[in-house]
Amino acid sequence: MSALTAPPRRYLARIGRDERVWLAFAVVWCLFLFAIMYVWQFYGAQRTPIESYRIEPAEFRALTQDYIAEYRIGEVSGVPITVPTEDGEAFLAARAFVFEPVLQLKRGESVRIYLSSYDFQHGMSIQPLNLNFQVLPGYVYVVNLTPTTTGEFGIVCNEYCGLGHHAMSGRIIVTD
């Protein structure tokens, strides 16, 4: 008799001592793993962004261009640099194959980033923090960030978006 042949007709047995001990710990661990997500989401500093809206890619493009026109402070490698609005909002658009604009943020000041795409799906991967978010055309993902360190942070695209995918980047600059 083994796992390869039929067991006796009545195979139900009591749960043995070894099994009971292990099961008890296993159940507790499973419940902990479940609960911790709620705890982190309410009390942690790094919460998964949830807020999002539908938007036509063309409309998002228009809003982003308006934002860039108004809050542009410079340019790097052909990509405009902007600062957040007075209300601490900013637009970040992914398109084949660049993230625009480059955002210049202030340390300690929260910014509400409206993240979306003009064309394909992309991935916003902030380096070296290694914070990653999916970017979908047709949806605005609201990502709130509060930088605590200064410097230049790269953004690379980490969702395959075509043959230029491995040359798609962007940047966040954080100043004091």
Binding site: S77, G154, H165, H166, A167, S169, G170, R171
Partner: peptide, 13 residues
């Protein structure tokens, strides 16, 4: 990604 370092990107990382 063909290039883990994105070395061909206009904005270097």
């Amino acid at each position: 990604s063909w290039d883990a370092s994105y070395s061909l990107a206009p904005l270097q990382v």
